[in-house]
Design a binder for these strands. Structure first.
Length: 178
DNA sequence: GCCAACGTTGGC
DNA sequence: GCCAACGTTGGC
């Protein structure tokens, strides 16, 4: 049993999309990085993954998904109409893999990257490192449980609890670079 | 919109 | 096989 973190841009595919998908299951297609692909191939049925929204406001861990089918060829690689098309891939030489994942739970509140960074037990996580770009990374059992526990804890009363539709918040101008 | 970090590409 | 140029990612 292994734990993972899978990253997606919610404008492309969000955990809400997964909740609405048939059988709340989807193909995790489009991974086009060898290291991430190799992690996909190491996934076993029953493995659990933190579902993370990148390029979101805020970037956050938003739920948990479960691997329900192990790696098999990703056909979008030889679909010329797909944005994931790779001219070097073919049914005979798939190159890229995907897994199927099923929704386990949507967190009661998103755990933002800022909050994750504030948890000492999560300090070693790949996703929190500057310049981390891998869309699939392993996490330890402790990291997984720590994030899940935060996510399942009801939002505390007060302004810190973001409403589900607070996406319209815009960035403040003039932020200084670190 | 900016730009650091990183992977990939291609000339040599 | 090196490495500069280039493209992409993703937090800010």
């Amino acid at each position: 049993m292994q734990y993972w973190l899978i990253k997606t841009e919610p404008t492309s595919f969000s955990i809400q999309d997964l909740a609405k998908a048939p059988k709340q299951t989807t193909f995790w297609e489009g991974v086009r990085n060898y290291q991430a692909r190799n992690f996909l191939r190491a996934m076993k049925v029953g493995d659990l993954a933190i579902f993370y929204h990148s390029n979101a406001e805020p970037p956050a861990a938003v739920g948990v998904a479960k691997v329900v089918r192990e790696a098999y060829p990703d056909p979008t690689a030889w679909d010329k109409k797909s944005k994931y098309f790779d001219a070097n891939a073919s049914p005979d030489n798939p190159i890229w893999s995907m897994v199927d994942v099923h929704l386990v739970e949507i967190f009661k509140r998103p755990i933002s990257i800022d909050e994750l960074r504030g948890v000492p037990a999560l300090a070693g996580m790949e996703i929190l490192k500057r310049g981390s770009r891998l869309s699939v990374t392993p996490v330890t059992a402790t990291e997984f449980r720590t994030i899940e526990k935060l996510g399942l804890r009801a939002a505390s009363a007060g302004p810190a609890a973001p409403a589900a539709d607070s996406q319209a918040r815009h960035r403040s101008p003039g932020r200084s670079r670190r």
